[in-house]
Simulated assay, not measured.
Amino acid sequence: MPQSALSTDGALVLFSGGQDSTACLAWALARYDRVETVGFDYGQRHIVEMTARQDVRGAVSARFPDWAARLGEDHVLDIRGFGAVAESALTADRAIEMTERGLPSTFVPGRNLVFLTYAAALADRRGLKALVGGMCETDFSGYPDCRRDTLDALETALNLGMDRDFRIETPLMRLTKAQTWALAKGLGGETLVELTVADSHTCYRGERGARHAWGHGCGECPACDLRAAGWSAWVAEGRPALTA
């Protein structure tokens, strides 16, 4: 998108430092003239993502000068009290397995609803209209708060409750993980792909030891499984680029 076509509404990206939020950050930087990021410390076991998100931001600024000029402040919100209430395998030393509800034990009830409510309050004060998140209901773990109908309902509630006109943007909602890799290439070429592999973090166990073709992680948790399968499918397709 040429700079003259950039939206002046401004965007706040829910930025964990993972593969999906890295793609969303690039997507927003290609569309908005001002982009800020917000991360959440909710007592997650994979707290290493809080370091990864700074590494990704730094790498994006260094390697994409046009985007660096649009990348604004980063915000980190402490909501560990919520994490304690909504205990799961992401916030406590519990096995990652399927529960009797048919959901992974990594499900944190209402997490995206809380994230977006805090993000909307911050966006209100920062004068930003777009809330950008990496929620997806194509290749995902089945979390109900990742579904677009959930986010449509929340968008309505936030706008009624804050008397604003926020838009919850979910550029990955209908994409497979293979298509997310393709989107990254379409947005930032092989540079963004390599940056995502090297610096982003998705593993639920917080492991940064071994580097696989798709990045760092334990290679066994649901997040690693999704990321690895998406990479393999994308490579099998010839590593195409997806036009943003």
Rank of each mutant, 00 (worst) to 15 (best):
residue 184 A to I: 15
residue 156 T to A: 14
residue 39 G to P: 02
residue 214 W to C: 03
residue 56 V to E: 01
residue 72 G to E: 02
residue 217 G to S: 10
residue 241 A to P: 06
residue 180 T to H: 01
residue 227 R to P: 08
residue 232 S to L: 11
residue 146 C to R: 10
residue 215 G to L: 04
residue 29 L to F: 03
residue 182 A to N: 07
residue 110 G to Q: 03
residue 101 R to L: 12
residue 206 G to D: 08
residue 204 Y to R: 08
residue 7 S to I: 06
residue 151 L to K: 01
residue 69 A to C: 03
residue 188 G to Y: 01
residue 178 A to T: 06
residue 79 I to C: 04
residue 37 T to G: 04
residue 118 Y to T: 09
residue 41 D to T: 08
residue 150 T to Q: 01
residue 201 H to F: 03
residue 237 E to Y: 00
residue 120 A to D: 07
residue 38 V to I: 15
residue 15 F to G: 01
residue 243 T to L: 12
residue 240 P to Y: 08
residue 229 A to E: 14
residue 230 G to K: 08
residue 151 L to W: 05
residue 140 F to D: 14
residue 137 E to G: 06
residue 4 S to T: 13
residue 215 G to I: 03
residue 240 P to Q: 04
residue 70 R to G: 02
residue 218 C to R: 08
residue 96 I to G: 03
residue 190 E to M: 11
residue 59 A to Q: 02
residue 12 L to D: 08
residue 147 R to T: 09
residue 91 T to C: 08
residue 92 A to Q: 14
residue 140 F to H: 15
residue 202 T to A: 12
residue 15 F to R: 01
residue 5 A to Y: 11
residue 56 V to Y: 01
residue 47 I to G: 06
residue 17 G to R: 02
residue 144 P to E: 08
residue 183 L to T: 04
residue 66 D to Q: 14
residue 132 V to E: 05
residue 8 T to D: 13
residue 208 R to E: 13
residue 228 A to H: 12
residue 20 D to W: 10
residue 178 A to M: 06
residue 29 L to G: 04
